[in-house]
Simulated scan of single mutants.
Amino acid sequence: MANVTFHQEPVTLIGSEIKVGDQAPNFTVLNNDLKEVSLDDYKGKVKLISVVPSLDTGVCSLQTKKFNDEASKVDAQVLTVSMDLPFAQKRWLEANNVSNLITLSDHREGNFGEKYGVLIKELRLLARSIFVVDSNDKVTYVEYVSEVSEHPDYDKALEAAKQAK
């Protein structure tokens, strides 16, 4: 498993680590209208999945805004997954004028977190990470950010999304 810290303290990630070349696990989360959605809802599309602990924190907010700004430059569906409630995600999107990506909530079951190995046992938050999944649902890029409070490598993730077919 990836070694991840939260404010320099080691945390335990629940689930299996995803690797490049893996078939992307299907998952069930909620959209902002409280409707269940899964990876299957984006079948046939390249997906850039940006995972953040909470949109209400500085780095998570900046990460989501960055991918929103870059979304039009990649031929991919950009998804941001967090443990925030769908109502809070919707409010954040509106308050920050973010409309080029979709936010999804894993708060109900932690299903995404477990299937992608990013559910932090001690905090019931998701570890910051990025997954690029091609149109055939193969994982082409993975980044588990080693310190949850730090930024991912935006350039590598965006380049991976541009290269995925």
Score class of each variant (00 low, 15 high):
Val145Gln: 12
Lys35Ser: 05
Lys115Phe: 05
Lys138Arg: 12
Val74Lys: 02
Asp69Asn: 11
Asp69Ser: 10
Leu34Asp: 10
Ala76Glu: 14
Leu34Ser: 08
Thr5Trp: 04
Ile49Asp: 08
Ala127Lys: 04
Lys138Trp: 11
Glu150Leu: 15
Val78Gln: 04
Ala127Asp: 06
Glu94Leu: 04
Leu62Tyr: 14
Lys35Ile: 00
Asn100Leu: 02
Asn26Ser: 13
Gln23Phe: 12
Leu158Glu: 11
Lys73Pro: 10
Val74Trp: 03
Lys19Trp: 06
His7Trp: 13
Ala2Ile: 06
Lys138Asn: 12
Asp56Cys: 07
Ala76Leu: 09
Glu122Met: 03
Ser135Tyr: 08
Val132Gly: 05
Met1Arg: 10
Val98Thr: 07
Asn32Thr: 15
Leu55Gln: 13
Glu114Phe: 05
His7Arg: 15
Ser129Val: 04
Val133Thr: 01
Ser61Tyr: 02
Val78Asn: 02
Ser149Val: 14
Thr5His: 06
Gly15Lys: 04
Lys65Ala: 14
Pro86Val: 00
Ile130Val: 13
Thr5Glu: 03
Asn136His: 07
Ser146Ala: 12
Thr64Phe: 09
Val4Glu: 12
Arg128Ala: 04
Asp75Lys: 06
Gly58Gln: 06
Val46Tyr: 03
Ala76Gln: 07
Thr57Leu: 06
Leu13Ile: 10
Val98His: 00
His151Trp: 13
Ser38Phe: 06
Lys73Arg: 12
Asp106Tyr: 02
Gly117Cys: 04
His107Asp: 14
Glu109Gln: 15
Leu126Gly: 00
Leu55Val: 15
Gly117Ile: 04
Gly21Gln: 10
Ala95Ile: 01
Glu109Ser: 12
Asp153Phe: 14
Glu122Trp: 01
Lys66Leu: 14
Leu39Ser: 08
Glu17Ala: 05
Thr12Leu: 06
Val139Cys: 13
